[in-house]
């Protein structure tokens, strides 16, 4: 099939950037979206142009490195799918496809579709862990964890940190990301000793990074390739209020 791509090109963080149009012929419906961009880039290199920079690594939907807003939707039209797992058969011959980077003040554009998501790492560093000195752990079976709790913790732990939630949120809020980690760790008995400090510190860091506030629009959870539910945000708020009263 033949496509018209309008891709955000921006040479560096200080540049203004603009949408640039490319025509791409003979796209196979079996290509992944990133393979389609690979083909475009091969052509651009031979034509002496700079290829489109985009982040990607595992290409199996788990590393969380890829991500672009395709026709206004983070990771494109297919539900619960990262950009690398989106295939061209979701599009039709003759389509015009707009490709833009994640847009949020906390995710500045570095080049083309590459953004800086290091704010997420700092949120995790501020409290998204359980402090355990290597080698000091008790026998794994010393604390049973009820299966429903373990399963719920797992569901939240599947977050891949791609940033689609922030990109989709009209407020550029990182609530879904932060709430997934808080919920994962605070649900588990192992996470209990640091329960209050964890949520307080992570929320403070989130605010410091310049993410917006949550107005419960629900956009984040629809964009999330791992289906982290909105109830995690409710849980984050509950944990936060609880931590405030325990200060």
């Amino acid at each position: 099939m033949n496509l018209t791509l309008r891709i955000w090109r921006q040479r560096g963080p200080e540049d203004r950037g603009a949408m640039v149009t490319y025509e791409l012929a003979d796209v196979s419906p079996d290509m992944s979206f990133l393979e389609m961009l690979d083909v475009l880039n091969e052509r651009l290199i031979l034509e002496g142009e700079d290829p489109v920079a985009f982040d990607h690594d595992c290409r199996e939907g788990i590393c969380g490195m890829c991500g672009m807003v395709i026709n206004g939707q983070a990771h494109g039209p297919r539900d619960r799918t990262t950009t690398c797992q989106l295939h061209m058969r979701e599009f039709a011959d003759g389509d015009v496809i707009d490709v833009e980077p994640w847009r949020a003040a906390a995710f500045p554009v570095m080049r083309d579709l590459v953004v800086d998501r290091s704010g997420f790492d700092r949120i995790i560093g501020s409290g998204g862990y359980i402090s355990v000195v290597t080698g000091s752990a008790p026998e794994a079976h010393s604390t049973p964890v009820p299966k429903p709790i373990a399963d719920a913790a797992f569901d939240n732990a599947t977050c891949i940190g791609c940033g689609a939630c922030v990109a989709a949120c009209p407020n550029g809020s990182a609530m879904l990301f932060t709430s997934a980690k808080v919920t994962h760790l605070n649900l588990l008995p192992q996470g209990a000793p640091e329960r209050e400090s964890r949520v307080r510190d992570m929320v403070a860091q989130m605010d410091e990074e310049g993410f917006g506030g949550c107005t419960n629009t629900g956009e984040c959870t629809v964009a999330c390739p791992k289906g982290i539910p909105l109830t995690s945000i409710g849980n984050l708020n509950r944990e936060y209020l609880r931590a405030l009263t325990k200060r």
Binding site: A137, A153, H184, Q190
Partner: peptide, 20 residues
């Protein structure tokens, strides 16, 4: 030891209904 370490870190391994 690895399993002990990871469980203490909060790695959500699959569990039985017994919690083990």
């Amino acid at each position: 030891q690895i399993i002990d370490q990871c469980v203490a870190q909060g790695v959500p391994f699959a569990r039985e209904y017994s919690g083990l």
